[in-house]
Amino acid sequence: MTDTSLPRRAPPRLAALRLFATLLVFWLMLNGSLASDVLVIGVLVAAAIVLLFSGSFSVLSGHRLTPDALIATLRFVGLFLRELVRANIAMAALVLNPRLPVSPALVKLRTGLTDPVARLLLANAISLTPGTLTVEIAGEWLFVHWVVAPTTDPEEATRAIAAGFERHLEVMYG
């Protein structure tokens, strides 16, 4: 697959604005207050960081800002939280089972995502869901440790582990 992700990047000014907003929100949450002195310092420091470093924070800039993408983001978060709860309950049942019925395997998945940030998010979503853990990423291949693996076939494993998250990430990072 050829790498055509570059032209899709957000224009520099928008990326800088997004970095500024992220930094400011982070600062306000860290302080837990909206007092004017806190706000002023936050704005000044965030602006200084953006001016000095806006070229090097590309991690924040791949996301698209269309309505579709925002809906997909919400769906992604929703799906992720649902998976998190479901998998945690499954893991709890497993740990409490006296026989400890694990059948682990390290399986291979292939992702169709080309954007590096999208791949990272996919790997993290897989890792945060108990029962599956991304061990290594090599290009479009993800190596995932699976505590209760019903299959070791790459195609089936991709469908079972990655497909749900991928569907939303494709819209978010086009």
Binding site: L84, V95, L96, L100, L133
Partner: peptide, 26 residues
């Protein structure tokens, strides 16, 4: 507590990572 139990009971390093450090996130 279940995460701690998983950390103790799981058979190898990988499954311990799975049970111990991630079940504790929720």
């Amino acid at each position: 507590a279940l995460g701690g139990l998983g950390l103790w009971r799981m058979p190898d390093t990988y499954t311990r990572i799975q049970a111990g450090t991630k079940a504790t996130t929720l």
